[in-house]
Write a protein that binds this DNA or RNA. Sequence first.
DNA 1: CCTTAACTTCACAAATTTGTGAAACTAGCG
DNA 2: CGCTAGTTTCACAAATTTGTGAAGTTAAGG
Lengths: 165, 165
Amino acid sequence: MTEPSEAGRDPEAVSKFVESFAAQLVEAGMQRMAARVFAALLASDSGAMTSAELGERLQISPAAVSGAVRYLAQQHMVSREREPGSRRERYRVHSNQWYEAVSNRDAVLKRWEYTLREGVDGLGPESPAGRRIAETLAFFEFMEGELIKMMERWRIHREERFGAG
Amino acid sequence: MTEPSEAGRDPEAVSKFVESFAAQLVEAGMQRMAARVFAALLASDSGAMTSAELGERLQISPAAVSGAVRYLAQQHMVSREREPGSRRERYRVHSNQWYEAVSNRDAVLKRWEYTLREGVDGLGPESPAGRRIAETLAFFEFMEGELIKMMERWRIHREERFGAG
DNA sequence: CCTTAACTTCACAAATTTGTGAAACTAGCG
DNA sequence: CGCTAGTTTCACAAATTTGTGAAGTTAAGG
């Protein structure tokens, strides 16, 4: 019934997955078009698509693709590749992508920590509010360290289960 | 200079912290008013404020407070308490709050995992796309387990450092 | 160099989100 | 039972965000 190597194997199923996963990413705060592009790449066999292919599949303009891709690249959620000997570009997700994305949260955490430190300073480390904020800061510092170790464990776990990517 | 137990100790510093921390929460996807209310509570000495106090400090209407607080309560980021013998309500952050909030991410992860499983099914576990999604699923499952253990470690770490909350 | 395919930027219209004032509840208190 | 302080809901105006078509930019290929 299903032809495993057929390119447009089950457009229905692909589309359903793309739209529902994208919806959840949106709920988590991602821009709509970026979420749809990311989900589409995730659900493609090659893991890479050109701007034209994305526009076609998602029924959106080149401008929308461009905006979405810029955002995703900034977040390290896709990488761009120049198709050699052509002005066409392809956008790719790595199977390793989540590793990248989560590791990237680190930078965000650092900024939060900075703001919290300022807060402790401004409010005084001995005031009740200052203490509460200091505890929040401690939590984030703890998380930061743990996240790094966790990602290291994932790397190993992953290699055991899927082999090197 | 600074009077540690003065209620409005340094309104300047408080406001600065509230607004910059809120801005970062917004950047991370939280609604603006909810972020401001949360930051204001975090920066208050008692860790709790009434609707009127919040409205006053943040210069927003009762309606805005109501909406923000509803959202925060749903996310388990504040709890509501009835001031005994009054129809006035207070909204409170616990110092433990982040533990709660992160634990709550668990529910979100579960929903993502469900969608990913559907995707693997729909695309076929042997197709390249199916395999990529299966790996994403494995990553989230791994994260879920790790998060739980991490929060347990935090609980212990925290008690050592700050004593039971 | 000129042509042209591919991507990006820009101004704008449409859609969505946000916060408000005012009306509608709720529940203490007399 | 009202009365009224406190909160929530609702309709709407304002602000913001989103996606588009069209113009602008870049660089491959002749």
